[in-house]
């Protein structure tokens, strides 16, 4: 295992344009940010490739700033940095709440939001928040910039519209109208209970996004329109059941996840009333 790691190559781009040129010309190349997903795979003996691209020194991919009313969050921003951001605490508190839930301190100090999204696990804690806040994924390649609405970023389980020659450089989040709500239901000790994540916004046009209940993060549009048109909570929960597709796995059953998802929806709606 260790000698196998020593044989892997780490490319050191001098700049973003150099990194993008390497992605185009030296393919296949795997971007490496905080490594908290990449190294778990390497340590398990199932590497994602033999050539890696060190993103750490691309300072243009860092930082949280507000430009023309839109918050831009660099792809290399760590969850620890998100937790410390006064701007996010004011404008996007649900992302701060999500960051707090990612692993432990050691992971938060390394794990980046870009890696969380690119990795694309449906259990990624930042995903429902980005979905509920109508975030835009900013992709760059040697050819130029593409802006993809977060809701259209995933096409299937761990499948995205991102091309192999592209990097996520940032997320852009427009002002979120209304009250933000976030809750993650995690595992309990010694129980095979898994987690469901809900990020939501209470507004005349409510927004509801669930994690861990389908192959991708789910923006529950039908549920939202039931709530927007004054439907009852039961009607909204019924709509939700048509929009999620949880699975049975080691940690919990699909039925359990459906119940938790409906309960979270109720909790969101009553707490923000």
């Amino acid at each position: 295992m260790r000698s196998a790691l020593s044989a892997l190559e780490l490319l050191e781009p001098r700049s973003l344009s150099h990194a993008l040129a390497l992605l185009r010309d030296a393919a296949p190349v795997v971007p490496l940010a905080g490594g908290t997903d990449v190294y778990v795979l390497l340590n398990a003996g199932t590497p994602s490739g033999t050539r890696y691209l060190n993103l750490q020194r691309l300072d243009g991919l860092r930082g949280i700033a507000r430009r023309n009313g839109v918050i831009s969050i660099g792809a290399l921003t760590t969850f620890a940095e998100i937790r410390r951001s006064a701007l996010l605490a004011r404008r996007l508190p649900s992302l701060v709440a999500a960051a707090r839930e990612v692993g432990a301190v050691q992971v938060q100090n390394r794990a980046t939001i870009g890696g969380n999204v690119a990795n694309g696990s449906p259990a990624g804690d930042s995903l429902p928040v980005l979905a509920a806040s109508d975030a835009v994924v900013v992709l760059r390649s040697a050819d130029g910039v593409r802006r993809v609405p977060f809701d259209g970023f995933y096409t299937g389980y761990r499948q995205t519209v991102m091309r192999p020659d592209e990097l996520i450089v940032a997320f852009e989040v427009p002002p979120v109208p209304g009250r933000q709500w976030f809750r993650k239901v995690g595992t309990r000790a010694a129980q095979t209970i898994s987690k469901v994540v809900l990020a939501a916004v209470r507004a005349p046009e409510p927004r509801v996004a669930f994690g861990s209940v389908a192959p991708t993060v789910v923006r529950a549009r039908r549920t939202e329109s039931v709530l927007a048109s004054g439907g009852t909570l039961n009607e909204a929960a019924a709509a939700l059941m048509t929009e999620i597709a949880p699975i049975d796995d080691l940690r919990s059953t699909a039925e359990y996840r459906r119940r938790v998802a409906a309960n979270l929806l109720r909790q969101f709606w009553t707490e923000t009333a």
């Binding site: 340590n43 060190n54 620890a80 100090n109 390394r110």
Partner: peptide
């Protein structure tokens, strides 16, 4: 554990606690 779960490999990188089993030397 070798997978970021146990913390036995915790060291400080620029003053911050990290799992040394998940950090590439190049970084």
């Amino acid at each position: 554990c070798g997978e970021g779960e146990c913390g036995a490999c915790t060291v400080l990188l620029d003053g911050q606690a990290v799992n040394a089993c998940l950090v590439p030397f190049g970084q």
